[in-house]
Computed example of a mutant assay.
Amino acid sequence: MSHDAFRSTAPRALRDPDQLRARLDAVRTDPVVRPLNDWVENLRARLGDGESVPWFDPASAGVGARSLFLLEAPGQKSMGAEAGLRRAGSGIISIDNDDMTAQNCWTLRAEAGLPYQESLHWNVVPWYLGTADRIAAPGKTEIERAAPFLHEVMAMLTSLEVVVPMGRKAQAGWAAYQKRYAPKVHTLPTWHPSPRVFASRPAARQEILEVLQEAAHLLRAA
């Protein structure tokens, strides 16, 4: 299947079982994400924790990403059924997942004119935190532990120009990473795109959109 075949025209595309099956079939074969997902498989073995790390999305830019969007840790809807969670989802970190945070990312990216085929979404902590029933936020220990693993991902993103850490935990994780590794990229921090943030901070959506528009401008100017 060609990369263009994964292009979604509306949010929550991965609620479609056929689309999800096609993505999962491609996680280890599509050349844009195969190096990243080989790394995921290796990390799972190193952690000794089975399916706790989701796959990178074949619909994204993969190793060719020019922009990287970082959240804090995988949500339940990005975890596959093998993980044994009550509300498991796709098994892929994707803006096409069937949840409101992914939908907000999809819509804001489209409004900002940021092609998903030039972007990559990931988390400062790449493994699931929490129980079968409830997700947990990463603490300082988890963030520090995860920094070397983020560095391994960053080393594969040789075209990267812009990083957008979304939310306080992601910003703390990216700051810890920056302090240790000093990457030469533009950093544009913004709010977490969750419905809870949008409900409590009415201006957050517009502020995120402005940051994504700035990211799009930087990429066009490069």
Rank of each mutant, 00 (worst) to 15 (best):
A176C: 14
S52F: 00
Y177V: 04
P115S: 08
M166C: 10
D96C: 08
I143N: 01
R168I: 09
R44L: 01
P17F: 00
F69P: 02
F6A: 15
Q213W: 00
R12Q: 13
C105M: 15
S194C: 04
A172G: 05
V153L: 15
L129E: 00
S159W: 09
L209R: 00
I143H: 01
A199W: 06
R21F: 02
M100Y: 08
S52V: 11
P138M: 01
A73S: 12
S94P: 12
P115K: 04
R109N: 12
R66H: 14
P126Y: 03
E214S: 11
Y116I: 05
A182F: 05
G75W: 08
G50T: 09
A215R: 06
E207R: 14
R28K: 10
E41R: 10
A136C: 05
L14R: 01
D133E: 15
S200T: 13
G75V: 07
A215S: 06
G89P: 08
L68P: 07
Q206C: 02
E41M: 15
R21W: 03
H217Q: 11
N97H: 06
R15Q: 12
A110E: 15
S78V: 10
L150K: 00
A199L: 09
D30Y: 01
V53S: 04
S67R: 09
L218H: 05
S194T: 06
L70A: 08
E111C: 06
T158E: 11
N104L: 05
E41N: 11
E51L: 11
L209M: 05
L71K: 03
G89I: 02
P138W: 00
F6H: 13
W127P: 01
C105S: 09
E144H: 08
Q76D: 14
K77H: 14
S200L: 12
E161Y: 06
V40S: 09
L160I: 10
T158M: 03
R196Q: 13
A102E: 05
D96S: 14
P31R: 03
A65H: 08
A83H: 11
R205C: 05
R28S: 12
V27S: 03
Q19N: 11
I135G: 14
R21L: 11
R205M: 08
E72S: 15
T9E: 10
Q206I: 04
I143K: 02
Q19V: 09
V185F: 04
Y116F: 15
L160R: 04
F69I: 14
A22P: 00
G64C: 01
M79F: 07
P126N: 06
F6K: 01
D25R: 12
R66K: 10
V185L: 09
P31H: 04
L212R: 01
V33E: 01
A65M: 06
R205G: 10
T131E: 07
A110W: 06
R15I: 12
L188K: 05
L160P: 07
H121T: 14
Q206R: 08
A110H: 14
A147S: 10
T107C: 12
S90D: 10
Q76V: 11
P189E: 10
R44S: 12
D96M: 08
A216H: 04
K77N: 12
W39F: 15
E72I: 02
N97Y: 01
F198T: 03
S159G: 11
S52W: 06
R46A: 13
A81P: 14
R134T: 10
